[in-house]
C-alpha cells in the first residue's frame, strides 16, 4: 500500500544529510565532528601530550607525571561532570564550587565538631549538596528564573553560609585522620610502577562511565538532551521538563558534594577557602570539551577531556619553566577555538 503513495517513495527524492552538498574529506570530517563532538578535545589532548612528551621526554611521559596530572585534575574533572549535565539542559551552574566547599565543611564540622559518626557526617554533606542543587532546580524549573541568575545568587548564598558556619576556620588534616579517617577515603592510593591512582581519580573515571551510560541509554538521559535542545518541543512530546530539570540540578549538587569529599582526600584538611575558582574552571573544561553552551549537544567524556587538557597544559608548561600566565593564555585561546568550532558544526549541520 505504501508503495502506491506516489512521490513519497520516489527514490530520487532521497535527501541525506550531506549527499546534496559538498562531499569528500571536508564533509565527512564535519559529519564526524557533528556526531562525535568529543573527538576534537580528545585529539587536542593527545596532541598536547605528544608535544610535551617530545619537549620534556621522560620528565613528562612518566607514569608518575601522567598520574600526577590525573590527581590534579580529579576535583575539577568531577565538578565538570556536574557542570556538564547542567549545561546540556542549556543551563549553567555558577554555584558548583561553593556547593562543593560547603558540603566538605558540613562533612568536617559534623564529624569533628558535632561528633557525629563519620558515615552520618558524610551522608549529611552529600544531602547538603543535593539540597543546594534541588533549590536551584526548583527556582529554574518551577519559578522559571534564568539559570545564570539563580546560580549567581546561590553561589553568593552558599559561599557566605560556608564562611559563616565554618568561621573561615580550617579543620586540620591530623584531626580528621584521627577522628574521621573516612573523610580522607578518596586520598588513598593504588600504586604500581610509579603510577599513583588515588581513589578520587578512580571515582572520577567511574562517574564518567555512569553518566555516559545514563545519558545515552536511559530515558532520563534522552530527556536531558531533549530539554536542552528545545524545552517546548520536549514538553509537547510528553517529557516532564520540570522534573527533568530539577533532577539534573539536584544530581549536579550531589556530584559537587562528592567533589567536596574528594577534595578533603586531596588536601587532607577541610578548608573553607579552597576551590573558589571551581565554577569558572569547570565551565572552561566543559566548553573546551565540546559541550554546547546552548544545550543539547556534547558528552560528559568531552568534559573529562577538557579538564585533562587544562591539566596537561598546566603541568607541561610548569615543567618547561614557563610563567603560569602562559597556561591561562593558551586556555583562553582554546576556549575561543572550541566555541568557534561548535558554532561552525551547528551551522554546517542545520
Amino acid at each position: 500500500m505504501s508503495q502506491e503513495t506516489g512521490p513519497a517513495t520516489n527514490p530520487t527524492e532521497q535527501v541525506a544529510s550531506f549527499s546534496g552538498g559538498p562531499s569528500g574529506f571536508k564533509a565527512r570530517l564535519i559529519t564526524l565532528l557533528y556526531t562525535m563532538p568529543a573527538i576534537v578535545p580528545l585529539f587536542v589532548l593527545l596532541l598536547a601530550v605528544a608535544i610535551f612528551g617530545i619537549l620534556l621526554g621522560d620528565r613528562f611521559l612518566s607514569p608518575f607525571a601522567l598520574t600526577l596530572i590525573l590527581q590534579q585534575v580529579a576535583i575539577i574533572g568531577i565538578v565538570a561532570m556536574a557542570q556538564a549535565i547542567v549545561i546540556l539542559t542549556a543551563g549553567i551552574d555558577l554555584s558548583v564550587g561553593a556547593v562543593m566547599i560547603l558540603s566538605s565543611v558540613v562533612m568536617g564540622k559534623f564529624s569533628v565538631d558535632l561528633g557525629l559518626p563519620q558515615e552520618v557526617a558524610i551522608l549529611c554533606g552529600l544531602l547538603c549538596g543535593m539540597l543546594c542543587g534541588f533549590i536551584s532546580g526548583v527556582l529554574v524549573a518551577v519559578v522559571k528564573l534564568p539559570p545564570f541568575i539563580v546560580t549567581l545568587g546561590m553561589w553568593q548564598i552558599v559561599l557566605a553560609t560556608n564562611f559563616l558556619y565554618s568561621r573561615s576556620e580550617v579543620i586540620r588534616s591530623q584531626i580528621i585522620a584521627a577522628e574521621a579517617p573516612l573523610l580522607q577515603f578518596f586520598g588513598r592510593t593504588i600504586s604500581f610502577g610509579g603510577a599513583n591512582f588515588t581513589y578520587g581519580v578512580i571515582f572520577m573515571f567511574l562517574l564518567v562511565l555512569v553518566l555516559t551510560y545514563a545519558l545515552a541509554h536511559t530515558a532520563w538521559g534522552r530527556h536531558v538532551y531533549a530539554v536542552g535542545d528545545d524545552p517546548a518541543a520536549a514538553e509537547l512530546s510528553g517529557v516532564n521538563v520540570t522534573r527533568t530539570l530539577i533532577s539534573v540540578y539536584t544530581l549536579a549538587g550531589l556530584i559537587c558534594a562528592f567533589a567536596g569529599w574528594v577534595l578533603i582526600g586531596r588536601i587532607g584538611s577541610v578548608s573553607p577557602q579552597s576551590g573558589q575558582f571551581a565554577n569558572i574552571e569547570s565551565i572552561t573544561a566543559v566548553v573546551i570539551g565540546g559541550i554546547s553552551l546552548f544545550g543539547g549537544r556534547g558528552s560528559v567524556a568531552g568534559a573529562l577531556f577538557g579538564a585533562l587538557i587544562v591539566g596537561v597544559f598546566t603541568l607541561g608548561l610548569r615543567l618547561l619553566g614557563l610563567d603560569v600566565q602562559w597556561t591561562y593564555l593558551l586556555i583562553g585561546l582554546l576556549i575561543i577555538f572550541a566555541v568557534t568550532l561548535d558554532q561552525r558544526i551547528r551551522k554546517a549541520a542545520a
Partner: peptide
C-alpha cells in the same frame, strides 16, 4: 512539530 532537532528520528518518535 515538537521535535528535538539534535536527537535521532528513533529518539524523537519514542520521546516521553
Amino acid at each position: 512539530l515538537a521535535l528535538s532537532p539534535a536527537l535521532s528520528i528513533a529518539d524523537n518518535m519514542f520521546m516521553g
